[in-house]
Simulated assay, not measured.
Amino acid sequence: MSEPLNQRPTRIVVDLDAVGGNLRAIRQRVGVPVMAIVKANAYGHGLVPVARHLVAQGAEQLGVAFVEEGEALRRAGITAPILVLGGILGRQVASLLRNDLEITVSSLDKLRQVEAAAEALGRKAVIHLKVDTGMERIGVHSYSCGPLIEAALASRWCQIKGIYSHLACADDPASPMTALQLERFSEACAHFDRLGAPMPIRHLANSGGVLHFPDTWLDMVRPGIILYGVLPDPDAHRTVELRPALSLISQVVYFKVVRAGHPVGYGATWAPPAGTRVVTVPIGYGDGYPRALSNNGEVLIRGRRRPIVGRLCMDQFMVDLGPDGTAYVEDDVVLIGSQGEETIRVEDVARRAGTIAYEILTRLNERVPREYPGVSQPG
């Protein structure tokens, strides 16, 4: 009998039906095309399988951070439009063009680099102009974007497909910053009307914008974390019905009885006040599971919440079952997800670890295999 392709008891299980359902709910709310953001390994869910599913479910466009992510999607046979959102260097432009990737142009200097590479290759570049309306990250300032827009319109080698900015505070429905950014963005876009040029696709709304600010939806929206069923902020309003798509599951690999006062783990930071039962789980910070959960996190075993005790190790951690708790080797341990009547959400893990849900998801690295139930070859 052949060995299974993966024997590691720790795995990420991704519910692609949930991802597709979240996309449909977003589309129903906004009524405009969706650029599905799949950067950072689709927020830890798996770049290629998720992107392929989102395109099949009707996402009009994909967004990635780096040229390498776009190249990986093209190698996988994905032909949908892909915008590389991040800042670029001149040496990257040829690869962007050869892979038919849409390019973020954030300054006159970047425009000239794209034009030169496009002319050398004899193919037009599809570009999106990036306007900075308040992030001070990349993009030409909204108050000085006129020369870039004029030069891009005059370019023989660049086709302006879109113009966009990024919202800094849309996760907070009460923040006045979003209205200010929308005003600045509208003033930038008005250059096209003044020049008598057709308006490109305007896209501004991220996940927070989708949830809270209908005025930012414009011609296209760019949801990220809400595609995966996770709110961008604990105080965000649940205006879209979302279903979490990711579960993180391991198994018990060891069981022992620990005597009272005998410390557990590195640094001897925890010892039971009375005899107890402790199990070991084979996942650690080397997989991206936060070390900040040492003596702080919880997992589900046999449908009950159990505390992580001692310091989280690179590859393992220990869980206290209590003096009467029961578990056996190979029992499932749920770190994110549901078991019985209990659920641990990504947001719960982030709160205990003192960080944000984005970081929890994107830190889960390739050492943890991903499974896609119902998909024979996720690719």
Rank of each mutant, 00 (worst) to 15 (best):
M1W: 10
P4Y: 01
L5I: 10
L5W: 11
Q7H: 10
R8L: 14
I12F: 00
L16Q: 07
G20H: 03
V32G: 01
P33W: 03
L47S: 06
V48R: 07
P49C: 06
V50M: 05
R52F: 04
H53I: 01
E60R: 05
G63M: 06
F66P: 00
E68K: 08
R75E: 13
A76M: 12
G77Q: 08
P81C: 10
P81N: 07
Q92H: 13
S95K: 15
L96Y: 08
L96A: 13
N99L: 03
T104I: 04
S106E: 15
D109I: 05
K110F: 02
L111V: 03
R112S: 09
R112T: 14
E115R: 00
A117T: 01
A120K: 14
H128W: 01
L129C: 01
V131W: 11
D132R: 05
H141D: 13
S142I: 12
S144E: 15
C145D: 03
C145M: 10
A151F: 06
S155N: 07
R156C: 03
R156F: 00
C158Q: 09
Q159E: 14
I160H: 02
K161G: 06
Y164E: 01
L167F: 05
D171I: 11
D171H: 13
M177S: 10
M177A: 14
R184H: 14
F185W: 10
E187R: 15
C189A: 15
P198W: 12
R202Y: 04
H203Q: 08
L204H: 08
A205D: 06
G209R: 05
D215H: 12
L218Q: 14
R222N: 03
G224E: 11
G224V: 04
I225Q: 02
G229I: 08
P232V: 02
D235K: 12
T239Q: 12
L242Y: 08
R243Q: 15
P244A: 03
P244V: 08
P244N: 05
L248N: 02
I249Q: 10
S250E: 11
Q251S: 13
V257P: 00
V258S: 05
V258A: 06
G261T: 04
P263F: 11
G267I: 04
A268V: 00
T269M: 01
W270F: 15
W270V: 01
P272T: 02
P273V: 09
A274S: 14
A274L: 11
G275K: 10
V278P: 09
T280W: 07
G284V: 08
D287N: 15
Y289C: 02
G297K: 11
L300M: 07
G303Y: 07
G303A: 06
R305Y: 14
R306P: 00
P307A: 03
I308Q: 06
G310I: 05
C313S: 15
D315M: 09
M318R: 07
G325F: 07
D332R: 15
V334Q: 06
G337C: 11
Q339T: 03
Q339F: 01
G340W: 13
E347G: 03
D348V: 02
V349R: 09
A350G: 09
R352F: 07
G354Y: 03
T355M: 08
I356N: 05
Y358A: 11
E359T: 13
E359S: 09
E359R: 14
I360E: 02
T362C: 00
L364N: 05
N365W: 12
E366W: 11
V368I: 15
P369E: 02
P373S: 06
P373D: 07
P373G: 04
V375W: 14
